[in-house]
Design a protein around this nucleic acid. Structure first.
Length: 401
RNA sequence: GGGGGAAUACUCAAGCGGCCAACGAGGCCAGACUGUAAAUCUGGCGGCCAUGCCUUCGCAGGUUCGAAUCCUGCUUCCCCCA
């Protein structure tokens, strides 16, 4: 605690760590590290089990960026070895193990995505296969002897699965150990993770202590829910991808539930507390548009954000037909097609049955007018037909009747 | 090694010889209302130019006029005993 009173060092950086932290273990150790007045090695692990990062990852990446700007060394661990185990955190199921090819493919896309937020040139990037590929079976066993089954079973994701009589692979027990070993190998001073990673990052402390390293300080950042309030996951379709096209990104953000706006503002934008309060005090729609604009601007550009907002307002608020509608090619040269089949073949519906349903339900408009007769036939020719399916699918084709 | 259970559409979960393209819930899609929010109400959610035809209930066979439902083998998972 003496360091707290020391005039030297980087104690001012403490706020960067605590700004959005849920857990911090522990503050005294962190202050002592900061007092050393050197760039800290801040570890963050990415699990390449999918190819895309979303704004959920962005919460943590924003924190890292602030630390990076303050001069700390970000160490990004790409968990290519661990991905082949499958992280049990927050999962109720045995996760599929990925092949090396899949992992490599996913990793290849990561740098661009992380680079939207971090300065990649200043980031140390390590794959953990670097050390795990070399580990002998004996060493593996030794690593495994460092924790007990009882310790592992403390994790509620495991105990829940036990209770639910769901399978747990023995290899899953190794995941936290592997992640902890990463900390040993990169000599992390600090590790950041989502709150679901608390157990895993704490293992790093244990292993480092056993290796006569100073245990890393760990801090966790909040997990944000997806657009609909459920856990954000690409498979739920409620995630906003970091590389989503700007208009798409803006549109997705506008569908965020109101209740989450405050949190998203805090975690995903750099607005000050005062600015956030002002914005949130206004009309919710305006606030959300601002949020969407901020994030789109950050991940794309001010121009792209502006454009996305204008296009969104035009299409959905003012109900104008967007101006960048794809011109679709008539699917069957020279043939006459019933409307439902035309819709299906143009790709505006997933199947001809779906097209039939949509037409019957009045979701299909021709030049702005609803058309419920799915069997009405159209032929190819000169006139251009605007087909709209629902609120967001548009297409133009050339026809004559 | 022995014994007992389970596998159904995106998920959970009914069905246990014909009325099953398969109840229900979540989810998703569309319509109404709106701020493309939420909530609410309505309709829909295997495929096919279709009053019918084809494929689906872990996999492969079999019994039967007829099987998701019965039998056999296989695969996978769970539990108990050792």
């Amino acid at each position: 605690m003496t360091s707290v009173n020391s005039p030297k060092g980087r104690q001012g950086d403490l706020a960067l760590f605590t700004r959005n932290a849920v857990d911090l273990i522990n503050e005294e150790e962190l202050l002592a590290l900061l007092a050393e007045d050197r760039p800290l090695r801040v570890k963050f692990g990415l699990d390449p089990s999918s190819a895309d990062l979303h704004v959920g990852h962005m919460v943590q990446l924003m924190t890292l960026r602030r630390l990076q700007e303050a001069g700390h060394q970000i160490v990004l661990i790409l968990g290519d070895a661990t991905a082949m185990v499958g992280d049990p955190s927050g999962k109720n199921k045995l996760r599929p193990q990925l092949s090396r090819e899949e992992v490599d493919h996913n990793l290849a896309t990561y740098m661009d995505q992380a680079g939207l937020i971090l300065d990649i040139d200043k980031t140390e990037i390590r794959r953990n296969s670097e050390w795990f590929d070399k580990m002998s079976f004996l060493e593996t066993l030794k690593l495994n002897s460092r924790m007990t089954v009882a310790q592992m079973l403390e994790r509620d994701t495991f105990s829940k699965r036990m209770d639910a009589k769901e399978p747990i692979g023995i290899h899953e027990f190794m995941y936290p150990l592997m992640q902890g070993w990463d900390s040993v190998k990169v000599q992390a001073d600090v590790e950041l993770g989502g709150t679901d990673q608390l157990f895993n990052v704490l293992v790093g402390r244990t292993l480092q202590a056993q290796e006569a390293q100073k245990p890393q300080v760990v801090f966790t950042g909040p997990l944000i829910n997806g657009l609909d309030g459920r856990k954000m996951s690409k498979s739920y379709g409620n995630a906003v991808g970091l590389t989503d096209e700007s208009k798409d990104m803006f549109g997705k953000l506008m569908s965020l539930e109101d209740g989450a706006m405050e949190t998203w503002f805090q975690l995903l934008t750099n607005l000050s507390a005062e600015e956030r309060a002002t914005v949130l005090a206004g009309h919710p729609r305006e606030a959300k548009a601002r949020l969407a604009e901020e994030i789109t601007c950050f991940l794309h550009s001010p121009e792209a954000a502006k454009e996305a907002r204008a296009a969104f307002d035009s299409q959905f608020r003012d109900k104008n037909v967007p101006d960048d509608i794809p011109l679709l090619e008539w699917p069957a040269a020279g043939e006459e097609l019933p409307l439902f089949l035309l819709v299906a073949k143009l790709g505006l519906a997933g199947s001809s049955n779906e097209a039939r349903r949509l037409v019957a339900q009045g979701a299909v408009r021709l030049d702005g007018e609803p058309e419920k007769d799915g069997k009405r036939r159209f032929g190819q020719g000169e006139a251009e037909l605007l087909i709209q399916v629902g609120k967001r699918r548009f297409g133009r084709v050339k026809v004559s009747e």
